[in-house]
């Protein structure tokens, strides 16, 4: 990779981190309403899968993947407005967090119902296939969500038709408080791929190089019409399930161990190996991301709060006769 790309990837990791940190801080200050689900610690997964996608590929982020929004091209300012529930958010305030997608950039907004996006991603990939478009759909889901029937149903269909979809399981070892061993009886979620007739791969989700290499293979395979892949990224969320969760169900030791495998630190080590001026890159990047997030926050704060009657907008595509109703 070129130095420019190495730096750029570092920028994305840090931008997401800065975004997450700022949101958590604002939540603590009581500036945000509703649930906040930090993806801090999992940045390499979203950067690794989204960075090299084409503009007309589609992603289906899970509830902590605000990083995926950013890397896929969502305007950080609108994303922040979305989190504030403001009019300039993707949902125009009708919901917050990642429940409003940015369809123009190929970013699908999920419902809360975990993994309900997977059948949708499969359907979209089916269209790519029947119209012979070399586009791919990337569907993210948690290891907890993997217990839902929607996951099985989507993968089964994708296997039958060899659809251009990549299923990305972000295994951060907990689903809220529930550990892997109470969630499934296999060692790896990726082991299930065999049951659908496609390939499953396990990757260190904190190692951006590893994620990118695996992502590239899976995406190429999908684009060439060779069918889906299930990639399981082993990673960790530093924060609780939501900002309200103290996460007493895990040990401090475990958190510290994972912090030592931080995706951003790992990337800095790599930059050092390449003999770049890491100190300078770090400072310059820190400044850039701080500015970007400041700007996003300022925009979101200034964005108007929706007014009551706006609640009635965007329900139907075709006007309805309210008198007749």
């Amino acid at each position: 990779m070129t130095e420019q790309k190495d730096r750029e990837l570092y920028y994305w990791l840090r931008l997401i981190r800065e975004f997450e940190d700022r949101i958590s801080a604002m939540d603590k200050q009581g500036k945000l309403m509703g649930g906040v689900y930090s993806g801090k610690g999992q940045e390499a997964v979203t950067v690794g899968f989204c960075h090299d996608l084409r503009w007309d590929d589609w992603i289906f982020p899970l509830h902590r993947d605000l990083g995926a929004f950013l890397v896929k091209g969502a305007d950080p300012r609108r994303l922040m407005a979305q989190i504030f529930g403001k009019r300039d958010g993707f949902a125009k305030g009708k919901d917050s967090y990642l429940h409003g997608g940015d369809l123009g950039n190929g970013i699908f907004g999920a419902t809360s119902m975990l993994a309900a996006t997977l059948p949708v991603a499969a359907g979209m990939a089916f269209k790519f296939k029947i119209r012979k478009e070399d586009r791919v759909a990337i569907a993210f889901f948690g290891e907890g969500a993997s217990s839902r029937g929607d996951v099985h149903e989507a993968m089964n269909f994708a296997g039958v038709h060899k659809l251009p979809v990549v299923f990305v399981c972000e295994n951060n070892f907990y689903a809220y408080s529930t550990p892997n061993e109470l969630q499934f009886g296999v060692d790896n979620v990726a082991d299930r791929a065999a049951g659908y007739g496609f390939k499953g791969e396990v990757v260190n989700g904190n190692d951006l190089h590893a994620v990118m290499a695996t992502a590239r293979k899976a995406i190429d395979r999908a684009r060439k019409g060779e069918g889906p892949t299930l990639v399981e990224c082993k990673t960790y969320r530093y924060h609780g399930h939501s900002e309200h969760d103290r996460a007493d169900y895990r040990t401090e030791e475990e958190v510290i161990t994972w912090e030592s495998r931080d995706p951003m630190i790992l990337w800095e080590v790599y930059l050092e190996k390449k003999k770049y001026d890491v100190e300078a890159i770090r400072n310059e990047t820190a400044e850039r991301v701080r500015k970007a997030v400041d700007d996003a926050v300022a925009f979101a704060e200034g964005s108007p709060a929706p007014e009551g009657p706006e609640a009635m907008e965007d329900l139907y595509a075709m006007p309805i006769d309210t008198e007749a109703r």
């Binding site: 309403m33 403001k86 305030g93 009708k94 919901d95 709060a305 007014e307 609640a311 009635m312």
Partner: peptide, 16 residues
């Protein structure tokens, strides 16, 4: 409730 989903932003939620 009015004929809409229950939206997030306070003024709209209150409206619905």
């Amino acid at each position: 409730a009015r004929e809409a989903h229950t939206p997030f932003a306070p003024a709209m939620e209150d409206y619905v």
